[in-house]
Design a protein around this nucleic acid. Sequence first.
DNA 1: AAGTGGTCTAGACCACTTG
DNA 2: AAGTGGTCTAGACCACTTG
Lengths: 233, 233
Amino acid sequence: MTLPKFSQIKQHICQQIEVGAWPQHSKVPSENELAGQFSVSRMTARRALQELTEQGLLVRSQGAGTFVATFKSQSSLLEIKNIAEEISERGHQHSSVLHQLKTINVDAEMAILLNVKQDTQVFYSEILHFENDQAIQLEQRFVNSVLVPEYNQQDFSVITPHEYLSMVAPLTEATHEVEAILASAELAIQFGIKAPTACLQVKRRTWSSQGVVSFAILTSPGDKYRLGSHLVF
Amino acid sequence: MTLPKFSQIKQHICQQIEVGAWPQHSKVPSENELAGQFSVSRMTARRALQELTEQGLLVRSQGAGTFVATFKSQSSLLEIKNIAEEISERGHQHSSVLHQLKTINVDAEMAILLNVKQDTQVFYSEILHFENDQAIQLEQRFVNSVLVPEYNQQDFSVITPHEYLSMVAPLTEATHEVEAILASAELAIQFGIKAPTACLQVKRRTWSSQGVVSFAILTSPGDKYRLGSHLVF
DNA sequence: AAGTGGTCTAGACCACTTG
DNA sequence: AAGTGGTCTAGACCACTTG
């Protein structure tokens, strides 16, 4: 299974930027130059440049060219942090209980979210995280078994899914959706809270260079958890 | 100056979804059908579908087709967007009702948040924002009267606070705190929802080069609003 | 088997910026 | 005038899902 040509070109450009060969504001090869170098049509080279522009790595200007974008100082805002780390940074004790770790058949929706074929087997893990004996987050995670075939063989009492995935499939991209929901009866019991409590629910999709790695649903009681971000312009 | 063909097709699809002709999860015309209907090449029809998918309006599945996505208002955590703009980008109608616009004496906490002396007079505005006649966000805002002395003389039926502040005190920095809360009885009435509903509450502090400009509390019903972010590493 | 989306080609004309 | 990106065409082959 080889990567599509436009993906290969994207990877090449990312690499050049990462190693510093193409610094900020430097001109990157034009569509025609890339098409020549990689022996593809202009449309394919264009797609690579276009997608990297949408991702914020490049900026384009008709007539002028394509340039490496200014790196955003966005690392601190909604970082993808490991919950165990977050808790220990607060000087508290992290622990977790593994509820489930199994293989499931994806339904249509999950197939789209993980970008796998229907009826593929994927991994599902459910872990409840504690901060000083207080349940703080329920982590429900679906993992692409093609990209991370040994996910279900890990011991999640010694490593968090986030830590393991960071090792075997480094993050290149992520999306978040944040919602407020009412705790279900079941959730309320797990968190040890009374029935009508608001919860923050973050749905996080993560990518490595190979594709979608996992889809996680992170739910936390609203009165014990919040998200922060700091933007600098 | 006419719109490009792919934009016209996008508009047409948006319209169908808006007027309810194509409800959630319904199948939209295939690339080939659209190409035929609009007398364009398949690549052009495809671009329209592709961009709407990236924007979250459609979902696609190879072999199966393209479908209208589950609709939910979404706002980005990474940019400070004007709510009126956000709503009109979704093709909906924004309106607002000004509840209050007055001068108040800050208490100790607000003095710290706005970085002004205690007992300074600051402006307070309270505005309820609607998306198509549905109340979607309550904006409670405290504004530094030293940096923005004419805030209380604006007509907030023609300009949003965000738009006005962007003009007179451009953003240089912002912090967000996101929490899930239970709607108070008063809030529930304003939003037209039943009592135990979860709400997303964003507390936003904004700076211009001169200092803290404003502190805003943005509250939205959880079932009608969500925040999103897209990170690239 | 027919339809769908995913990738790709080799051209074209255009608006725009740069030397 | 030459190069660049923006739009568009009319094809092609493929993997996949559906009846």
